[in-house]
């Protein structure tokens, strides 16, 4: 078992004919993911790498039964691509695209909240269920099938965490990169809830960073609801206020969003917080009581 995706997931790639869209489509397929269709408006009817391309997601779903979408559409059209996936009844839309304007995402979020479609991202590495299915741009080889759920706002920092968790002798049930933008689909809590209900997930590792209050909200939720051990790391302890650290969402403004506050709140809610990014694997073991 896993959450969100598994070996039966049928994936449509929106923006499949773009450079990174095609590259990562091949990578995901090599990992074992079932890529059943691509969508590029105006290019419907062709095949690329043996994958049929459609003009619309609706057609792709109708002809192939796709239920998961991986989105590589560039920023000007990305919001539309997400809405199209939702309109076509896709279960899970994973938007990799970086740089979508906030004004475009406000209505998208409003619509998504009222549909059955789950959105991961934008500006995220994607979702992987090790050994079964990869929908995203993360390197597959660092992952190992197992029982740790991983949820993160970051990309490459997640790879670092996963590597440490794997080196600690633990595998992962599913890893979800929720993205570093101010407006994203699934939040920490949405993913934690799924991990909590997944019988194959024994514990969770959570990776946060400065900015916003998503980590604090997650901490409160964990205290009230989480039945499984949780370990965490928060990046940006040394970040100066008022400077945007790469991610549009990673900024300390008006004294809010500081790493120390997040770390304190998580600790108070029973989460084992790694004191250093070099000790993420160790923190996971500690939370499991194996240290």
């Amino acid at each position: 078992m896993s959450i969100l995706i598994n070996r039966d997931s049928k994936i449509v790639v929106q923006g499949i004919t773009g450079r990174s869209g095609l590259f990562h489509t091949q990578q995901c397929r090599d990992y074992g993911s079932k890529i059943v269709a691509g969508v590029t408006p105006g290019k419907g009817g062709i095949h690329i790498e043996g994958i049929p391309v459609f003009n619309t997601v609706e057609e792709a779903v109708r002809y192939t039964g796709a239920n998961v979408s991986m989105i590589f559409v560039p920023p000007p059209g990305a919001a539309d691509a997400i809405l199209e996936a939702a309109d076509a009844g896709i279960d899970l839309a994973v938007c990799i695209t970086e740089g979508i304007p906030v004004r475009d995402m406000v209505p998208v979020k409003r619509v998504i909240q009222q549909t059955r479609t789950r959105l991961v991202g934008p500006n995220c590495p994607g979702v992987i269920t090790p050994g079964e299915c990869k929908v995203g741009i993360m390197p597959g080889y660092i992952h190992k099938p197992g029982k740790i759920g991983v949820v993160s706002r970051s990309g490459t920092l997640t790879y670092e965490a996963v590597k440490q968790i794997t080196e600690a002798g633990l595998g992962q049930s599913t890893c979800v990169g929720i993205g570093g933008d101010p407006i994203i689909g699934m939040q920490f809590i949405d993913v934690l809830r799924l991990f909590n209900e997944d019988p194959e997930t024994e514990a969770v590792f959570m990776i946060g960073e400065i900015g916003g209050s998503a980590e604090e909200d997650a901490a409160e939720w964990i205290r009230e609801n989480m039945k499984k051990p949780v370990a965490a790391f928060i990046a940006g302890v040394t970040a100066p206020p008022g400077k945007r650290m790469g991610h549009a969402g990673a900024i300390i403004t008006g004294g809010k969003g500081k790493a120390e506050d997040k770390i304190r709140t998580l600790g108070e809610c029973g989460v084992v917080v790694a004191p250093s990014p070099t000790k993420m694997g160790a923190a996971m073991l500690e939370a499991l009581g194996k240290k």
């Binding site: 970051s154 490459t156 670092e160 960073e209 940006g236 650290m245 790469g246 991610h247 990673a250």
Partner: peptide, 16 residues
């Protein structure tokens, strides 16, 4: 560093 989160974590570990 590649990636914002890892970049922040790298600064943190350097200070450590």
């Amino acid at each position: 560093v590649n990636g914002a989160g890892l970049a922040m974590a790298t600064l943190d570990v350097l200070k450590e």
